[in-house]
Nucleic acid binder design. Structure first.
Lengths: 210, 210
DNA sequence: GTCATTTGTCACCTTGTGGTGACTTGATAT
DNA sequence: ATATCAAGTCACCACAAGGTGACAAATGAC
């Protein structure tokens, strides 16, 4: 009993490494992510990371595929797509945006990755970007035929609103108040959701003075 | 003439260090900012950075105070504050938001710092945050009395719009198209400005059905 | 001139990183 | 029982980072 050698279970070790990546990102942010840190967090020798995954990029890819960071299309479009499509443009767009906000709010790790992609574009962030294939964009393309009907620049307005949601969520990671709105509390997000609904109703209704 | 020793001009070297910080941030982003990189870029021994500034935080503070990254209040409110205040709420808010976007678009270094603040909150970013004192918020507080009049949640709507502008500008640093909008070209930003104007007009006009 | 101060140069240290080779130890099949 | 192979451990490398102390040379005061 000279060494408390590990459980000698490859699957368990590999899984521990994966989970260490997640907890590390969630706790210390993407900044602190490195081979040494991951090995330390997982209580594992870093050489095993190389052996089992190959290196950081492959590890990141495995991590990205193993978890469900990315809001699925169904999560944003809702269960009943028929119902969504039978709504007015304003209602359906507002609903999707709100679903988008809620889905992202549930995923601190996703937010962390988005923040990281904001400051560094390298092979690692590229890997994660390829994993998700930008679900948000895809969802908006889902009902693209409806968008061209309105006379207002619907694309520009939805672009503004989705960008706004992303930014507020990113800022909420370290800031409580954004321009008098509490972007951390549920009440603050109810205000934001209401504002989104108002904007959509006022600007995306057919016949509105664009 | 064994050594091409420097010009032996403290002011000049100190200024060179400051300028090196700027070019380094603009070219390689905040990620690459460090004592060694700065010294290398300025062609100066790093010990002089410690001697003349004390260290990175003090250097950053000096840098923040020496340049005009931050859009001034007048730049966002325009020359004629009286005229601005005599406009309708919708018009004045839209104008300030558009001025905000244009001012930030002219300042790639400011965008770089904002991106950096998104991913790391440490003494360095804190220094820069204290330097600017969040001009944007201050400006919106400038005409706070007008905001409470409308029946819609004006604060929430302006929060959304300013967050949207910030996010689109941050993303424009490394992405061309955001949701079918070209966020790098002037034409794309004209679309965005028009959308902002539409939203303000439709949602901030008194009597609008909030 | 002489001497102290300032400006700049050089050499070094510690720490942490990514990465690799060589080893020990345990399980398993024959 | 033993040979084999995978799982895990240890020791090391090269490199870049932040940081510091000691020294050379130019400037300026007297």
């Amino acid at each position: 009993m000279k060494k408390a050698s590990r459980s000698r279970d490859r699957l368990a070790t590999a899984d521990g490494i994966l989970r260490a990546v997640g907890t590390l990102i969630a706790r210390d942010g993407f900044m602190a992510l490195g081979i040494n840190a991951i090995a330390r967090e997982a209580g594992v020798d870093k050489v095993l990371i190389y052996r089992y995954f190959g290196g950081m990029p492959e590890l990141l890819r495995a991590f990205g595929e193993s978890e469900e960071f990315w809001p699925s299309a169904s999560e944003m479009l809702g269960d009943d797509i028929e119902a969504l499509m039978s709504m007015s443009l304003a209602e359906s767009v507002a609903l999707v945006l709100i679903n988008f906000a809620r889905a992202l709010r549930r995923r601190p790790i996703t937010l962390e990755i988005m923040a990281w992609e904001m400051v560094e574009r390298n092979e690692l962030t590229e890997v994660l970007r390829n994993v998700r294939e930008d679900v948000a964009i895809r969802v908006f393309n889902e009902f693209g035929e409806k968008l061209v009907i309105a006379d207002a620049d619907v694309a520009a307005i939805t672009t503004l609103l989705s960008a706004a949601v992303s930014h507020l969520l990113l800022r909420s990671r370290d800031t409580e108040m954004y321009n008098t709105v509490d972007i951390r509390s549920d009440k603050g997000w109810e205000r934001i959701e209401r504002a989104i609904t108002v904007i959509c109703k006022q600007c995306l209704l057919p016949g509105g003075k664009g």
